[in-house]
Design a protein around this nucleic acid. Structure first.
Lengths: 352, 352
DNA sequence: CATCACTGCCAAAGCGCTTTGGATATCCGC
DNA sequence: GCGGATATCCAAAGCGCTTTGGCAGTGATG
């Protein structure tokens, strides 16, 4: 069923039918109703391709998911982010086009996307330090919003990010307040901007209390369970092991917990963990009241919704000056943190 | 840069340029080279929309991701499946269009997709028992491949699935061989076809050994860490608790492990776990040689690659009779399983 | 009563590509 | 030197929509 057929059935011109369906005022109310009913009855939906050709708008947004060739890992937060973004797109009638692409062929991919003209805008995932994609997309003139930021990029651009520095500074402060001094950082890949910011927050908090950051307590890699386990296990074997861990994701926190238990220690009593929690649907941090992990929490799904909305605004008015939005993470206290061991003993003896 | 401009630059007709780029024989070799070079130099890529209009092919595949309104959960295996499918699409020049949709509005979504004609085929995720989508898509005449199967649907259709029944039957046999008799099943939602099949495999294995399936040892819900924890914790409090768990995913297995440890027991010694392992990038089951969990393993990413390839074949030749492919899961033995406790003692006393 | 401003509709052009149906030039064998 | 392949190229139609520019008909205005 296409416009032509529908208009013949109705005995109207294509013009009138098109206008009736798109809400233009030049068509009588009675006619409009008649057209709408016929369209519904025949399951008519205009062809996206033809509509796009005629209007110059693709009614689609591109998401480019970088997959590192070395690691073959898809960041599991994408699923939730995309679910959030998808809600926004669906509500506004946009499609979402996904490109999964090796990170070494990204530049070419973006060029192709721009040339093929099948999206009106792009959502950029996983920005790195000095990420070249921002300059490239600016040059290509394609509206885009970055999920995260790229330190070192001077150009203005739109982004939506979590205040990672502040979140990790607060988390570190929280552990310092509990008496911890040997605090380990199990970070994400430090090429990634978010990881760099988290580290800065962590270091700033330590320095503010006169604790020198110890390189032996800082690790950086993909955020997998195995890596969390390996990093924590190694650090726990140090002569002067950490009494607390700061981890970049729930998944790596699970690995850290496993290492703690392997060492015969108890999380929350012998060793504390604070993790960042993206509030993923399938990996909720406890049910409401009493979270398992003390965590800096920020919903990545909500981030998806908001980032998508920002991008659609930008698409509607490309000359708009870049917008940005900084989401604050909530520090939720769970069962994974407690006073530093010595501290705990001191408190115990005081009470006696 | 569009075809018209490019052909003017070259002093050729649009016809010739189009044919040169699409590999038609009616164009001289020298001309072809000249055209190809100019196209590359000017970063020319034909507009997908226009090409689609002219050819009637969208060069895109739709993936509809159901999100249950009740649970707000995106199955984390989608990320890896889609990464796999994306590889296949990229290699063949196809785009992937993602629709995230409430499962109560699915029928309408599929109708819309068909009417909008912006995909050449659909990959169906998360089939349920008697899934109505198969009949709907067949009626709509849109090529599709189901990731999984739908028991109870009589129509022929193309699918790619893991042999879930066999995998869980083998896993159960493995536990029975180790002397376990109280084996719990922490399953996914039983509306889902894969969960129903796994249960059947589990029950068949028990019955074959004369062990009556105990409803108190069977749970079914979303595959989250919390749910695994809750289900296992409750079952471990039974007067006659299970000595082994069979879980539907690594994530729920992590929850089960937590419950085991909460109860002061040790996984692999006091209580065994066998889980299904989708071989997700960010949640590898140990590094190679010595897996953490004993598991039935099958790469969902590989499934994505293969399912996408099947779908593209179907799109190329829609009259082709439906194909199917059953992938076998490998049973890998890790540290999470051991002889049933009484059995272990018997073995110990024998050795003395 | 002629004029004017709407109202409600339509024919046709155009979006950027592919493809049909030639047209022209070249080359072959006889 | 001529009919017929063969090799190259082109003009124009068409894909399904939106949108421009009109054109009747209607009621109000002077």
């Amino acid at each position: 069923m296409n416009l032509k057929e529908l208009s013949q059935i109705l005995g109207l011109s294509q013009t009138t039918v098109s206008r009736a369906l798109n809400g233009y005022p030049e068509v009588g109310e009675a006619t409009r109703r008649r057209v709408q009913e016929a369209a519904a009855a025949h399951h008519y939906r205009p062809s996206t391709r033809a509509k796009g050709l005629a209007t110059g708008r693709a009614m689609a947004i591109g998401h480019v998911i970088p997959v590192s060739t070395r690691h073959e890992i898809v960041n599991p937060v994408f699923a939730d982010f995309i679910a959030g973004a998808g809600e926004t797109y669906a509500a506004k009638g946009y499609d979402m086009i996904l490109s999964v692409v090796d990170d070494d062929r990204e530049a070419r991919t973006y060029r192709d996307i721009a040339a093929k003209r099948n999206v009106d805008g792009i959502l950029v995932h996983g920005p790195e330090l000095n990420d070249p994609r921002i300059a490239l997309l600016t040059e290509l003139g394609l509206p885009f919003v970055v999920h995260g930021r790229a330190s070192g990029v001077a150009l203005p651009y739109s982004w939506l990010d979590v205040n990672n520095t502040r979140a990790f500074r607060r988390a570190t402060d929280f552990l310092l307040d509990l008496g911890h001094r040997r605090i380990a950082l199990v970070n994400g890949l430090e090429e990634m901007d978010f990881a760099a910011r988290r580290r800065r927050g962590y270091e700033a908090a330590l320095l503010a209390r006169g604790v020198a950051p110890d390189p032996a307590l800082m690790r950086s890699s993909e955020m997998t369970e195995n890596y969390g386990h390996e990093a924590a296990a190694e650090m726990l074997r140090l002569p002067d092991p950490p009494t607390a861990f700061l981890t970049a994701s729930m998944i790596s926190a699970l690995g850290v917990r496993r290492a703690i238990e392997d060492a015969g220690l108890k999380m929350g009593r012998d060793v504390s963990i604070v993790t960042h929690d993206d509030d993923l649907g399938y990996l909720r941090n406890g049910d409401g009241a009493d979270p398992i992990f003390t965590a800096t929490r920020s919903s990545v799904r909500e981030a998806g919704r908001l980032a998508a909305a920002m991008l659609l605004e930008l698409v509607a008015d490309p000359d708009r000056t870049p917008r940005s939005r900084l989401m604050e993470a909530t520090l939720v206290v769970g069962q994974s943190t407690g006073p530093a061991p010595q501290q705990a003993q001191a408190a115990l003896s005081q009470r006696r």
